[in-house]
Simulated scan of single mutants.
Amino acid sequence: MSSDPGRNRLGEETSPYLLQHAHNPVHWRPWGAEALAEAKRRDCPILLSIGYAACHWCHVMAHESFENAEIASLMNSLFVNVKVDREERPDIDHIYMTALHALGQQGGWPLTMFLDPEGKPMFGGTYWPPEPRWGRPGFRQILESVETAWRTRRPAMEERGRTLTAHLAELSAPSPGRSLTPGDLTRVGDGLLAAVDPAHGGIGGAPKFPNAPIFRFFWNEMFRRRDPRFGEAVRALLEAMSAGGIYD
């Protein structure tokens, strides 16, 4: 597959996050019909990267991989590369984050998804280091593996995309369901509280991301149940964030 003779088009955007990537050697395109048309013309997958300006791991991956000329050349030759600011396009972020969850993976940003030329999600993850590290495969390995799968097992990859898309359609269909009860809130609260990191705050292990809805729920539960453990979990999160590099 020949290298994309294009260029990085993010300098024409207004999003501060996209402009941060306007000088990457990656031939980034904004989300839109032109990117999909280019993928169809080249008959290759789309590499979709979603992040936002205040995302620490987005900046780490950008520095390690998107500013790396060798990795950028690999990306340009194998994929149509699309950058999305999740604060500008929460609709796109929601679709592909839901797809990532459907693949059984923990969400987070940067969200890295590989799509077929129609935009259907086939495979994804979050942050990948440039080389294998911390039990994670290297980004170079991921790029080459996805391209090989597309070339040698394309029907299976396309079928996965169709299955995921059908699942997303089911999730978005109206479903009245039953009303939540106080017992439901108690069960969810107890389950989430058990997942709190007692040493570093937040939910689960590294890498982790502040999840505002969960901790807003904890704050409400503290008052509803008069249980100080939920307030202590919120305080631990905020103290850990203030002691680190996140202040917004």
Rank of each mutant, 00 (worst) to 15 (best):
G138E: 06
Y96A: 01
E131H: 12
P132E: 03
Y127T: 05
M113I: 15
Y127K: 10
W128C: 00
D91L: 05
L103Y: 03
V80H: 01
N81W: 06
W134V: 00
E88I: 12
M97A: 07
D85K: 10
P132Y: 00
G124W: 01
I95Y: 13
D85N: 11
G135E: 10
P90R: 13
N81M: 11
M97L: 10
G119R: 11
T112N: 08
Y96F: 12
P132G: 02
G138F: 12
Y96M: 07
P137C: 09
E87K: 07
L111T: 03
G125E: 04
I95A: 10
R89W: 11
P90N: 14
R133Y: 09
I92T: 11
I92P: 00
Y96S: 04
W134D: 13
E131W: 01
G125D: 04
Y127W: 11
D93G: 02
P117C: 09
P110N: 05
E118G: 09
D93K: 01
P110R: 01
L115W: 09
K83S: 08
I95F: 12
L103C: 04
E131T: 12
M97G: 02
I92M: 05
Y96I: 00
V80A: 04
M113P: 02
P90C: 11
D93T: 04
P110G: 02
N81D: 07
T126R: 10
P117N: 10
H94N: 10
K83T: 03
T98E: 15
H94K: 14
R89D: 15
P117Y: 08
A99G: 07
G104F: 14
G107R: 12
W134K: 03
K120N: 14
G124M: 12
T126I: 07
V84I: 14
M122I: 13
E118A: 15
P137K: 04
D116M: 05
G124L: 13
P129S: 05
Y96K: 03
E131L: 15
G124I: 11
F123C: 04
R89I: 05
R133V: 10
P129M: 09
P129E: 06
H101S: 09
R136N: 05
E88Q: 15
K120H: 14
P121V: 06
